[in-house]
Nucleic acid binder design. Structure first.
Lengths: 199, 199
DNA sequence: ACCTGAACACCGTTCAAGT
DNA sequence: ACCTGAACACCGTTCAAGT
C-alpha cells in the first residue's frame, strides 16, 4: 500500500548534498541567517548527521567560502577571451567579478567574513590569493606589451583587487546610486584605474 | 551588613549603556558572535530589558552601524590637516580609514553587512554617503586647484571609496601579505590611484 | 562507517507581572 | 514608563544507540 520511496539509511553522498543545500540557502537569504539544522532539513537528514562530515558549523561555512572562491575563479577565467586586449580583459574580468558578487551576495559576504577556523584559514587564503594571481598575470602581460607602466606588479594587482572588491561590496549594498556617484560609477572607476596603470 | 551598592530599578540611561556594552563586545570578538543576551548581561540588566529600547536585535545592530559611520567620519575629518596638499590629504584620509577598519574589524564588518531593516537602511545609507562626501569634497578641491583631471567627481569619489574600502577589507582579512602583494601594498595602491586622478 | 533521537546549554522574542 | 521572570520555539553540539 505504501508507495513512498524510502531513503536508504546511508545517504552515500551526504557531504556534497549538504554543500549544495547550503549554497541554495545562501541564495535565498542573508548569510547570518544560515542554520546548520536547516541545511540538514533540506538534505532530508537528521540535524546531527552533518557532524559526521564537518566538525562544526564554521567548518561547513569555510568550505562554502572555498567553493565560492573556486566559482569566482571559473567566472574570471571564462571572461578572459583571447581576442581582447589586456585593458579590455582587465575591464571584462572586473565586471565578471562584480557580477558574481551581486549574483551571490550572501556567499560573497561569507568569503570575506573570515569565519574560518585557524587551519582552514590557510587554505581559504590560498584560494583568495588565486584570485589575486589572475590579476597579477594580466598586469604582467600588460607590462610586457608596454601598455602598462613598469611598476612592482604585486602592488598594482593589490590595487586592482581592492578596487574591484570595493566596487563589488558597495554595489551589493546599493551604495553606488547614480544620483550620488555618477551615471556609470563602475565604468568610470575602472577608467580611472586604467589611467593610473597606463604607461 | 550588606555593603553592596544596589542598582536602581530604573536604569535611567540604559539605551546608551546597551550601545556601549555592544561596542565593547565588538572589540572582543567577531560580529557574528554578537548576542543580545550577552549585551544585557554586561549592562547588568535582564535579557528582556533591551526590548524596551530596541524593537529587535537587528535594530540594535543597525544603530551600532550608524554609530560606526559617525566614528569613522570623525576620524576622517580629524585627519584632514590644513597645511597638507590635496593629494596628501587624500592619502592621509585613506590611511585613517584603513586604520579605523583594522582597529574595529567587527564593527566595520557590521557597517557593510546590511543587516539593517527596511526603514533603518535609509538612515544607514545616509551615513555611508557622508563618508563618500568627504572624498567628493577633496576631489572637487583638487580639480579647482588644477591638480586633478576634470572628470565627473562623483565617479572618481566612488572609485576612491571603493579602493579604500577594498584595501581596508583585504588588510583586515590579512590578505595584503608583503610576500604576495609587495612591500607597501597600501602606499603603492594609493600612488596608482593618484596617477589616475592627476591632471 | 554512517545516521538517529534524546539531551544540554544556549539564543531571540513575548508577555504577564512587578516597581 | 521601565524592568523582571517564566515561557516558547528555536539553535549548535554531544552521545548513546541503532543500521
Amino acid at each position: 500500500m505504501e508507495e513512498q520511496i524510502v531513503q536508504p539509511y546511508h545517504h552515500g553522498d551526504l557531504r556534497r548534498v549538504l554543500i549544495e543545500s547550503a549554497l541554495d540557502m545562501l541564495h535565498e537569504f542573508k548569510s547570518w541567517q544560515f542554520t546548520l539544522r536547516e541545511v540538514a532539513r533540506r538534505a532530508g537528514v537528521s540535524h546531527a548527521a552533518p557532524y559526521r562530515h564537518f566538525p562544526d558549523k564554521v567548518a561547513l561555512l569555510s568550505e562554502l567560502a572555498k567553493v565560492g572562491f573556486d566559482m569566482l575563479g571559473v567566472e574570471l577565467t571564462a571572461a578572459l577571451l583571447d581576442h581582447l586586449s589586456v585593458e579590455e580583459q582587465l575591464v571584462v574580468a572586473a565586471k565578471a567579478y562584480i557580477k558574481f558578487g551581486n549574483a551571490n551576495p550572501a556567499l560573497y559576504h561569507l568569503m570575506f567574513s573570515s569565519d574560518a577556523g585557524e587551519q582552514d584559514e590557510v587554505h581559504l587564503n590560498e584560494r583568495a590569493i588565486a584570485t589575486l594571481n589572475v590579476l597579477t598575470t594580466l598586469l604582467e602581460r600588460g607590462q610586457k606589451e608596454g601598455v602598462f607602466k613598469n611598476r612592482p606588479v604585486h602592488g598594482n594587482a593589490g590595487a586592482c583587487w581592492a578596487l574591484v572588491h570595493g566596487l563589488t561590496m558597495l554595489s551589493m549594498n546599493g551604495l553606488l546610486l547614480p544620483e550620488k556617484v555618477g551615471d556609470k560609477p563602475i565604468d568610470s572607476a575602472l577608467a580611472t584605474l586604467l589611467e593610473g596603470l597606463r604607461a
